[in-house]
Amino acid sequence: MHGDHAPATSAGPAGPAEPSASGQSSFDRVIAGDGRIEPRDEMPDDYRKSLIRQISQHAHSEIIGMQPEGNWITRAPSLHRKAILMAKVQDEAGHGLYLYSAAETLGASREDMMQALLAGKARYSSIFNYPTPTWADIGAIGWLVDGAAICNQVPLCRASYGPYARAMIRICKEESFHQRQGFEILLTLSRGTPAQHELAQEAVNRWYAPSLMMFGPPDADSPNSAKSMAWKIKRFSNDELRQRFVDMLVPQAQALGLTLPDPDLRWNAERGHYDFGELDWSEFKAVLAGQGQCNVQRVEHRRRAHTEGAWVREAAMAHAAKKAARQQQSARGAA
């Protein structure tokens, strides 16, 4: 057998069988004891499928998420900012790869996951279907979108599936710079010329609500959450994480000298949290359903890059095969 990466086909089209009685009880024991499930352990089929779905969606989000920011690499307004942005977008490709790699330990193949994304069958975070018309969007994405992502991701470092948790630890370590650089962009703009300040405020106005929706629908409408929490893939509910995020944002917005676009936002001393206004979930659902400004464009971009790269990927395989054949021949010649 081949380590953590069992050949994807070994599971067969129907997927791996349910665990034996002893496998199930050992799985339950590990989960109850807050231990980690590792790739070749027996696990319920639902757990495996649920993980593949979550991890591949997460990977797709990283890869699609390269585009709204990549849009500004060629126009970054200083060489310093250009270098940071290139490094950040590159990190996102890296994070997508760590995650695909984790999903592959569950028997999913990367090409299959990619084909599902390109065919529009796989989901990714809706936030990346919003456009980035101004440079301030790069700041707002770093501060709000990466900020929300970090809130979501830190608990995933303790997810019950080992490879996922390990990928998340690496990602969280690398992402801490992403939010800070976004904050720094916004702070510089906010303190810059009046035109720059306005760009910053306008970007925050656009990204604030979508970033709160990144935590997913309210707990009452989140069908998959309960199971994920029982399996210790997820550790906190959508609403808990959203509240935590809002509580963090308010003082940060004050430090930025920018306002958050919510008239209902106020401190509730009784709860010890900020109250905030109702979110417009109909918009969220519309973007999720494909009606965001960039849904079509994002998938099309990835499809074009993948299609245009096909001859390169094929050639690399053909060359590797030729080289192997030559080596074999010369080894035979020497024998």
């Binding site: 193949s109 990367r110 090409e111 084909q115 390109l118 065919a119 993948h306 299609t307 096909a310 395989m317």
Partner: peptide, 8 residues
Amino acid sequence: SGSPTAEW
């Protein structure tokens, strides 16, 4: 997206 080529 073309036919999936042999994966690396």
